[in-house]
Amino acid sequence: MVVEVKNLVKRYGDLIALDHLDMEVREGEVFGLLGPNGSGKTTAINCILSLLSYDKGEILVFDQPMRPTSYQIKKDIGIIMQNVAVIDELTVYENIDYFCGLYVADKKKRAPLVEEAIDFVGLNDFRKFYPKKLSGGLLRRLNIACGIAHKPRLIILDEPTVAVDPQSRNNILEGIERLNKEGATIIYTSHYMEEVEQICSRIAIMDKGRIIAQGTKDDLKNMIRIGEKITIECLTGDPNDLIDAIGELPFVASADAREKNLLVTTERGHNGLSSLVQIVHDKGIQTGRVYCELPTLNDVFLEITGKELRD
């Protein structure tokens, strides 16, 4: 086990930021920590890193208890913070070298690592630039390079893509997958479910300082009642007339009409699209577009907490 969190409690005055949190991260996986803003993701990360004091609980990293002075453990961790943490007065190269130097004292060993990190994030053309001259996306990449240059076994990324343009975001996500392939275990926090769905092998959903669900993507989607969402556009007739008939079908969880659209959700494991269309046609209604959507993590979140995951 790379990270093991047991019964972690953190209070800010009366506010409970982490409420008996339990969490496990296994060797070699990309672990996604998904939750809305303020759900306690960053607090959890900061506690794991021993940056924040906590009120109760136990934290093991690489099977050893984590303390502020556990330098042997810290050597193998790389962190990419939510805020860009670089020194304004140092160039791109110097920044990476400086932070890498905190982990790798030997200059000869360090130089190739720094080069590799620059290559990795594609900042080769900018190595003499000062952070102020970099665009937001490039700055994020520098931030990542500073966190991974020393080849850590565990990499923690705390919302690395906030306010980043789509191109840089893809670049970052690909990079994370590459790091994972090279053998690093990854903890990735985000409130963008698409990202988490895209790269994480295992996902925990957090809300109000607790993990409310965890497992693989499919595990999570299997937890909920809904199967698919089907939308049928009715070109003629009133979709309201159909609701009763469709609602009686055994695999239908709910049916609703919105303007010209008929919205149907099915029970998990069933589809029945063809029979639905058949019923519509039988009523003499002409259909326009017909499409189905698979459930998303948002649906999972919505069903468990009763609120949207998105901001």
Binding site: I79, N83, V84, V86, F99, L102
Partner: peptide, 24 residues
């Protein structure tokens, strides 16, 4: 502010490195 995690992001990063903050 460069070494205090609660004063600057770079300070936070430094606190996570395997070096004593006071030494830095």
């Amino acid at each position: 502010s460069c070494v205090q995690a609660n004063q600057s992001p770079a300070g936070a990063r430094l606190n996570l490195a395997p070096v004593s903050k006071l030494k830095v």
